[in-house]
Design a binder for these strands. Sequence first.
DNA 1: CTTGACCTTCCCATAAGGGGAAGCCCCACG
DNA 2: CGTGGGGCTTCCCCTTATGGGAAGGTCAAG
Lengths: 140, 140
Amino acid sequence: MNIGEAARASGVSAKMIRYYESVGLIPAVGRTEAGYRQYSPTDLNTLRFIGRAREFGLSMQRIKLLVSLWQDRNRASRDVKRIALEHVADLRRRIAELTAMADTLRDLADACQGDHRPECPILEDLEESADAASRGRVAS
Amino acid sequence: MNIGEAARASGVSAKMIRYYESVGLIPAVGRTEAGYRQYSPTDLNTLRFIGRAREFGLSMQRIKLLVSLWQDRNRASRDVKRIALEHVADLRRRIAELTAMADTLRDLADACQGDHRPECPILEDLEESADAASRGRVAS
DNA sequence: CTTGACCTTCCCATAAGGGGAAGCCCCACG
DNA sequence: CGTGGGGCTTCCCCTTATGGGAAGGTCAAG
């Protein structure tokens, strides 16, 4: 199976398949005499696994670990679970950051008339808090 | 004021100040005969404004718009509010994505024993759902 | 045998920075 | 006066994960 067919069958672009190979996420597959990469059904499963893991937002680093565990029949589920929970913790941290941003900005926008007049609490906050924020940084 | 002092006073690194200048987010400031950039208190305010806006996760694009509105005394608060609300919407979309990832992964991890045994619903899901996901992509 | 679809590698670009080298500049201390 | 250390300049490379595209080789259908 050529890379294009593997891409269509796995949902991973040919570009990314080559990239995953280059960074060692997947082993280099066999080639035809002309140099075309050849993919087996087993290779397809790996690609689909990776594509699915990407949908969970897992980093290449963690996916690399997961793939090796996935292929190791003697793995301990403990190790898999740890990786998953680390990622969940990362996601929750990121969600908390974004939520704080959204809430504050939403509050400011609520206080903004949003009409033809120039007065706007959003700009005032960005301007005024800047002093406090920079003092905070200097002090820390 | 040299760039280093401006960086300390604004909380924006010298590296980023030069970057903001290079991408046109801030105008090129004056130079000494030796080529050193010179910053005025007004320039500092702009830098602090930008730094604060970055804390809200706003993109360079939107900050560029905000800075120009901020400096335009005849701006309409409507325009400012629109930019802020667009960003809030972006944040909420991103939050929803991350939340879905975290919830699903957390559910899978909950179902995983996390002991020495190899059985793990996390890996099984990544493996099995891959087919459905790729079929979904092919069909769409 | 040509044409077009496919494959290869290589380079470039993204957003928002960080790291660091080479070289010039400035000031203070001895 | 001079020298040393710290500050400034530009330039280049690195990051993540991905897309775009050029130049050139390959394969299969007509």
